[in-house]
Design a protein around this nucleic acid. Structure first.
Lengths: 334, 334
DNA sequence: AGCTGGGACTGAACCGGTTCCAAGCGTACG
DNA sequence: CGTACGCTTGGAACCGGTTCAGTCCCAGCT
């Protein structure tokens, strides 16, 4: 049974208020008293009970992140940024994973705002009702890679990104360009893939390339399904010469499919593939991709949250980060 | 200002104790009363204050993981397992990142045990003193990929793993086999690399291959330094024909170095490389590697912790998971 | 000497739940 | 008809901190 503040007070011959002031380095305690209290604290190995402190002050020194954690490697990258941004702040991070089971459920059920001083929602679009329930007076909420008009947020322009990828392939001379992306999810949580897809469509249309329905394949967001979709594309009688993937994960699946058919990706005559994200793996496999600042998005989100926590008025509501095409080895002329 | 339990009680015309009983589905409340309280709760959008509950019950329904999070992709994989194992339990996860700054500091400074009901230490070897301070009565601690005789733990046999990698190369006919691993860290937190190295040494010795000091290169644990070390090895006048890397991350660096010199890894006459971990990337680049069950280790750790939390007596103290050589494209005859 | 002001310190009230003992009430049973 | 028992309910005490109004004491000033 660890000692409490009252026992410390008793042993030091002072009142609990004084011990509390010593603990918090508050003024109004003479040096000798402070010293004496410190000695008793060390002697008893006393550690203040953080739960009690949290109840009393209303602060937990904790920040929650609601994240589709294992489903998306990109979320992990953003989380790295969040951790980085929180590093020196004294705030700890509570993680709420949103797996398949929780996707359809209310994000407020995580009790994120009740548990912590601030909330970060990563790569999940909250509904209006959720935003209402998620917010608590005094508990700021910031979105990373998600949008809601009422909340400060860090976003990218997915449409422009999709366009960037397709334009790169068009410039190389490709005309039959396929798209491998996500099925529109019924929960409405994820919209990036659809937006990237419309960027792809816009680029093709602008180049006068007619849209070909059979070249657009949508499936669950993972490498396995993407590989299957890409394999189906390559098995067409008039197969595409290039694929735009909605993410690096899916692009890697497409590369696997190409390798399976003996097509060296990026070699002339082979299949060209463009990904999206620029995960670490992309560099290692030489994947051409649309880089989005994943880590930076997390860090910026954390910083916005910290600013709000320290009482600074919310500055600009929407922070739009830039995209950049990174050309590596998986794209070349058709 | 959200409503409190006393206000709910007042509006429902009952005492706080009754409301509390309703909240916790405790017996001893008549159906009509229960119903009435529920109606008021819905009406006021009342949510019990979790901090207060935590103080009162001593439980936070929270589990802490102390993890070298962004430094090691393998930690992320383990964390996936932890999240998975915790999924259905009702426990949330608090993450304590141990970055460069915290490596030298006391793990107990995280206050992990004060903040939560159980603690998981991942891939970090705690000292005796830390274990003493980390433990709190009633707060179980479980180690994942770390050892301490006094704590339940999930481990692998790193020495055997290093041996497995080297033996594979020896069997292929390699004789000049290099090792790229971590510098022994001054904090003593990480020992895997050294152990894998000694497995490598044992295998070479057993095969009668003399140890060659210049073939062992140690550096910081990342791909960039590994690439540099591998490049130096390849620039030797009598370069190695194969490299055992202490991790996939480092193996990827070695592959980059080989590619830079125009050596296709795994092609006959090229450089053979064996990694350790079997990260997802390994499959995509075709890396031969020693697979350790990363996700499973996390899940098992979480399960052990949950078992301890539900009062089950700690079963076996040490759980040793198996290793498996996964042969892909980066190894072949010299 | 008397008064004022300020620093050190005390301890009760409070944060918002849970818990447990006591009390009220209705029913069944002797 | 009285009593005992069980089910509901009430409400105070408690968890372990923080905070603040108030007390005490002493130095400085007139």
């Amino acid at each position: 049974m660890p000692a409490g503040i009252r026992e410390v007070a008793a042993r030091a011959g002072v009142a609990v208020g004084t011990v509390s002031r010593v603990l918090n380095d508050a003024p109004g305690v003479s040096a000798p008293t402070r010293e004496r209290v410190h000695r008793v604290i060390a002697e008893l190995e006393y550690r203040p009970n953080l739960r009690a402190r949290a109840l009393s002050t209303g602060r937990t020194h904790t920040v929650s992140a609601i994240v589709p954690f294992f489903t998306h490697p990109s979320s992990v990258a953003r989380l790295r940024g969040v951790v980085e941004g929180l590093e020196a702040s004294g705030y700890d991070l509570v993680l709420f994973n949103v797996g398949a089971a929780r996707l359809g459920r209310d994000l407020a059920e995580t009790h994120a705002a009740e548990r912590s001083d601030g909330v970060l929602v990563v790569s999940l679009r909250p509904s209006d009702a959720e935003v209402r329930r998620l917010r608590r007076p005094g508990v700021p909420v910031v979105l990373v890679d998600a949008e809601h008009r009422a909340l400060p947020r860090v976003v990218i322009d997915d449409v422009a990104g999709g366009r960037l990828a397709a334009e790169h392939l068009l410039a190389l001379g490709h005309r039959r360009i396929a798209f491998v992306g996500d099925l529109p999810d019924r929960t409405g949580r994820f919209v990036s893939s659809q937006r990237r897809e419309s960027g792809y469509r816009l680029a093709l249309a602008a180049a006068g390339a007619p849209p070909v329905p059979e070249l657009v394949r949508l499936g669950p967001h993972d490498a396995r399904h993407a590989r299957r979709d890409a394999a189906a594309l390559l098995a067409l009688e008039d197969p595409p010469t290039a694929i735009v993937a909605a993410s690096d994960t899916q692009a890697l699946g497409a590369l696997d499919a190409a390798a399976e058919r003996g097509l060296a990706a990026g070699a002339p005559g082979g299949l060209s593939v463009v990904g999206f994200d620029d995960l670490e793996t992309a560099a290692h496999v030489g994947l051409t991709t649309v880089r989005q600042p994943l880590r930076e998005s997390g860090r910026l989100g954390a910083e916005l949250l910290l600013a709000a926590l320290s009482g600074e008025p919310a500055a600009e509501q929407e922070h739009r980060l830039g995209l950049e095409l990174v050309v590596r080895r998986t794209t070349s002329e058709p």
